[in-house]
Amino acid sequence: MPGSAITDQPPVEPRVQDDWPRTIAVALTGASGIQYGLRLLQCLIDAGVRVYLLISQAGQVVLKMEAGIKVSAQPAEAERFFSQRLGAAPGQLRVFGRQQWTAPVASGSHPPEAMVICPCTTGTLASLAAGLSQDLIQRAADVVLKERRTLILVLRETPFTAIHLENMLRLARAGAVIMPANPGFYYQPRTVDELIDFMVARVLDHLRVPQNLLPRWGEQPTNGN
């Protein structure tokens, strides 16, 4: 898809802060459910976490289809767009190109604390299970696994084939957290946003990022039910 790829030129605007206490990588791939990833990004920024953002080519397509967001082909421009959209502080959000091998996430000497692929395609799942590093998303996930950091895969597909299930098992054994986008209904959600928040809350819990998106099991819901 000419003109749609995130290219390899690094952002050039000055950084005001580079000593964030926590850094988490987020990758958006081409599965349906991009709203999960967008909501996660917003919550991480609001929590004061530095975010390294990676977007696959198919992820760009889904951003436009499901959220009406057309991402620039230049990482610097995409970084400015998302920083403004999410209200990020200077230097809090960084966007890297898919072949930007000089990015921090490409090396085990500088891994993020955790990485979330949200949504995660079964194609990405297969590449990770095979140990491929054909782009920065795959390499970053491989680094997180080998460095024994937290890797969360928010799969959005149904039904699963035996191949999908075998790939999930292989990655779970390697240390990944397999978290399909299956929101619960016990708290009586009334809106799509509440269903999205259910999944994002579960991701944040596994990242140990404080959240109050929904009541805990056994607590009274806040919607009056």
Rank of each mutant, 00 (worst) to 15 (best):
P2N: 06
S4V: 13
S4I: 14
I6V: 15
T7K: 11
D8R: 13
Q9A: 12
V12Q: 14
D19I: 00
R22I: 09
A27C: 02
S32R: 08
Q35C: 09
L40N: 01
L41H: 04
Q42L: 00
Q42D: 13
C43V: 02
L44I: 02
G48Q: 07
V51S: 00
V51Y: 03
S56K: 07
Q57T: 14
K64C: 08
A67Q: 13
A67E: 14
I69Q: 07
K70S: 14
V71E: 08
Q74I: 04
A76V: 05
E77P: 00
F82T: 02
F82P: 02
S83T: 14
R85V: 02
A89Q: 15
A89T: 05
A89K: 15
G91S: 04
V95S: 06
F96W: 15
G97N: 12
Q99R: 11
T102A: 13
P104S: 08
P104C: 07
V105K: 07
S107V: 11
P119S: 08
C120M: 12
T122I: 15
T122C: 08
T124N: 06
S127N: 13
S127R: 15
S127P: 02
A130V: 00
I137P: 02
I137Q: 03
K146R: 15
E147S: 08
E147T: 15
R149N: 05
R149C: 05
T150G: 01
L153Q: 05
L155C: 08
T158Q: 12
P159T: 11
L165G: 02
N167C: 03
L169G: 06
A174T: 04
A174F: 07
A176G: 06
P180K: 00
P180I: 02
A181L: 12
P183Q: 07
Y186F: 14
R190G: 11
M199N: 13
V200C: 07
R202F: 03
L204V: 01
H206A: 03
R216D: 14
Q220Y: 03
P221E: 13
N225R: 12
